[in-house]
Amino acid sequence: MTTRQQRTPWPLGLPALVGAVLLVVPLVGLLVRAPWDGLTRILGTEEVLDALWLSLFSATLAMLISLVLGVPLAWVLARSTMPGLRLLRALVTLPLVLPPVVGGVALLLVLGRNGLVGQYLDSWFGITLPFTTAAVVIAETFVAMPFLVIAVEGAFRSADQGYDEAAATLGANRLTVFRRVTLPLIRPALVAGAVLCWARALGEFGATITFAGNLQGVTRTMPLEVYLAMETDPDAAVALSLVLLAVSVAVLFALRGRWVGGGGAA
């Protein structure tokens, strides 16, 4: 290993360049086409503010639910020895690769008013989920939680269990060990997973429009607003996209040194 700069061989350099161009140019296009003059006018409309508020609210709630359910799930996947764990891991990470719209169809068929579970929710408790903000949160949680589970599970797996054992030897019960020792150890991965989960929830489109429908202030999140605006007012669509782009940049900024810098435990 020398520190001397080496020339990049072209079979690596050329595809790298094309790949970089492919990823960067569309974003530049967004900035170039942005209606900078009308930006405040477009973003100040009631419809957009409703969508922005709804998106932030539902994505945050989806992230919190993912933390409450996903961290224990990740712990079980990493530390438990029960049979069938590999299958369970495959199943809970499936939404990562599943097209979100398929998730939406599945949610509708299970939790819809005539769905497998939904019909009982309706007839026993009078709860109907589709077309409510709750449906948006469920759709986002379905799609985003696996991101958190994977990040946290990796950390649980690689964290040194010696500390846990030491704490247990000193008399701490298992829950105290989890809370006071294990969780602090995996904090970086937990934060990275939560931010990633939040960002994925914020961008959710397919499952939301299929399962939760589309109504201003109730289920129409930012990505839906962008899609609808594209049909009638492309300028507005670009302006809204800029907001989501800014949020994404902020997320990367928040994660720098964790994932971007490559030092993450996951």
Binding site: L108, G112, R113, F131, I209, G213, T219, Y227
Partner: peptide, 21 residues
Amino acid sequence: KPATEEVDVKSVLTKVELGEV
């Protein structure tokens, strides 16, 4: 006051067929 505003007429029909509205 609709429960949902769908992207096209066939999506409206689907929601009716499924009994969701």
